[in-house]
Amino acid sequence: MFEARLPQGDLLKKILEAVKDLVTDANFDCSSTGISLQAMDSSHVSLVSLLMRADGFDHFRCDRNISIGLNLLAMSKVVRCVGNNDAVTMKADDNGDLVTLMFESQDGSKVSDWQLRGLDIDSERLGIPSTDYSSVVTMPSAEFARICRDLSVIGDTVVITTTKEGVTFASKGELGTGKIALRQSAAIDDDADSPGVSIELQEPVSQSFALRYLSFFTKATPLAPTVTISMSNGVPLVVEYPVGDMGHIRFYLAPKVED
């Protein structure tokens, strides 16, 4: 059997909000080490990779590896009913046919039980090589979301360029052009809610990406005050948000190249 209890149920809510518009159905792969999920969007341009380590749950039991296939839109509708301080318990039988989600209020005065039918999803799992990226930008997640939103007014592609001085996001379209430059900056009073912008630069990078997908990724903004954007020329970028201190959600996006 599989059973896992997450004290901060709102993490699961935020994860579902982050992926439900990008991915329709996905397998939650459960093993004794935790839960992982890997899924491509319907056009196979981007990839989501979620990791929730077993030690981040206050109870975690997985007798044998199982894949729980779920429709993420249906799951997000159920998980939206999680109160912010609720704990969430996920349970599944050994073949993952039936999944139970239980929400408990902090004082134990309310318990709700939901069951979702598991889906048989045939998805290939891709091997993602561990890579040293040429440029790694860490910045406030809300700022990244805002930049994606603001540049979408101008065009559908953003050119992200890193240099020693900072990072620029530029877009152009029929209306004109827009460019937003961020310099490296310190965090305000080491306040985790006001992180600064930092750039680890091995080599400068300049690549084009579809704003539509980056905007989907920014639905994960409520998960964390900071986001990390890792890039190398000619390979997909990675946009990473931490999931509490138990894991991460990573979004990979292939660069756009000239026709």
Partner: peptide, 12 residues
């Protein structure tokens, strides 16, 4: 032009 993400990441 946009390459598929799978073309960058092979089978595990």
């Amino acid at each position: 032009m946009q390459r598929s993400i799978a073309s960058f990441f092979g089978a595990p």
